[in-house]
Amino acid sequence: MNCPECDANLKIPGDASVGEIISCPDCGADFEIASKNGAVCELKHAEKVGEDWGE
């Protein structure tokens, strides 16, 4: 599928799961896999690192 930001070709590994982050190799935008049905993925913009993120 293509990057929703810059239209570059996004290669999503077959074993990628919902909740994983995919980065566009061209524009660097980060997307979260929101849903996955076979090879069809729905992407949404990934959340930014928050002040409370971590362990």
Binding site: S17, G19, E20, I21, E32, A46, E47
Partner: peptide, 13 residues
């Protein structure tokens, strides 16, 4: 329960 799947969550699953 997750909000972002990191390597750790994949390993646990």
């Amino acid at each position: 329960v997750f909000d972002r799947v990191r390597l750790e969550e994949k390993m646990l699953e």
